[in-house]
């Protein structure tokens, strides 16, 4: 029996730390798992398929005349706004699904495997970028159908789409954190919407900030979501990269830097 033990020990070098390369590989395997699950249960895609279509139609026709004078003039403003709002709303689901997932026994096995601790979380979040990509594509296509002709050209629109997806992934760490600490999936949803609504509606996504009272304007201008919306507008409509893009990315980086370690730590502490 000694021989067997040593053989195993010699067969695989034992290391007490996980390399960055292994963390990335583990996360991608976990993302593959997430994508398989999305393929098994396509009904969970309803929020990222139906919502972009309904919201784009609704907001454009309700607010178009009032805010911009005409629907055609409102489209360059509202499509980036709707895009950001829809995709970030889609990232709330990350938290609720993570909660449901973690309650299943399979997470016990993940914890007992010699893999990067962050992988089950990072993988789940990575797989959800597929959902954001679907929402992004549908919103942009709806915009074009309604008559939006982004002046920045296809290349810049794609760039804007990638920017939105990256930022949504970063923001999803907030909801992942709620997912890990909350007791049930429904409470995750409750807390998440409390954060989500101020974040998306108290921004320049739907209306220009100029008309707002000063105190609100200050918040809206500081809100990273506003910078993201402005960056997307500049990219898509005029093909320009402005300081808002960097501010949006900075905001995203700060969110990840704060919430990723917090989330992983709480995840590790939970039994």
């Amino acid at each position: 029996m000694t021989a067997i033990t040593t053989a195993t020990l010699e067969g695989r070098p034992l290391k007490n730390h996980v390399s960055l390369g292994q963390s990335v590989r583990n996360s991608f395997t976990m993302a593959y798992r997430g994508i398989l699950k999305i393929r098994r249960t396509p009904e969970q895609l309803i929020d990222v398929t139906v919502q972009p279509i309904i919201f784009t139609l609704m907001f454009t026709y309700i607010f178009g005349g009032a805010i911009a004078g005409s629907i055609a003039d409102y489209l360059p403003m509202i499509i980036p706004g709707i895009l950001v709002q829809t995709v970030i709303t889609g990232s709330v689901v990350t938290g609720t699904q993570l909660r449901e997932d973690m309650d299943k026994g399979v997470f016990d096995r993940f914890k007992s495997l010699p893999i990067a601790r962050i992988a089950p979380l990072a993988g789940a979040l990575l797989a959800d970028t597929v959902r954001y990509a679907i929402a992004t594509t549908l919103t942009l296509v709806m915009g074009v159908i309604l008559g939006w002709r982004p002046g920045g050209g296809l290349g810049h629109v794609v760039l804007a789409a990638v920017l939105v997806i990256v930022c949504a992934w970063a923001i999803s760490w907030i909801f992942a954190f709620f997912g890990v600490v909350a007791r049930s999936a429904s409470s995750v949803q409750g807390i998440s919407f409390l954060v989500l609504f101020p974040l998306t509606f108290l921004s320049n996504a739907f209306v220009p900030a100029d008309t707002l009272p000063n105190w609100l304007k200050a918040f809206v201008n500081a809100n990273p979501v506003s910078h993201l919306v402005t960056a997307v507008r500049d990219l898509a409509n005029t093909g320009t990269v402005t300081g808002d893009l960097w501010l949006a990315l900075l905001g995203a980086a700060v969110i990840v830097a704060v919430f990723a370690p917090l989330t992983v730590r709480s995840y590790m502490r939970k039994a």
């Binding site: 195993t8 695989r12 034992l14 290391k15 007490n16 730390h17 996980v18 798992r33 398989l36 699950k37 098994r40 249960t41 299943k104 026994g105 399979v106 997470f107 016990d108 096995r109 007992s112 495997l113 010699p114």
Partner: peptide, 22 residues
């Protein structure tokens, strides 16, 4: 040395630790 220990063990928990949806 938790990470080393994890390379030496297999765990079958009381409630099946497999993914129901897959």
């Amino acid at each position: 040395e938790a990470q080393i220990v994890r390379q030496l063990i297999g765990v079958t928990a009381q409630f099946a630790s497999v993914d129901e949806k897959l």
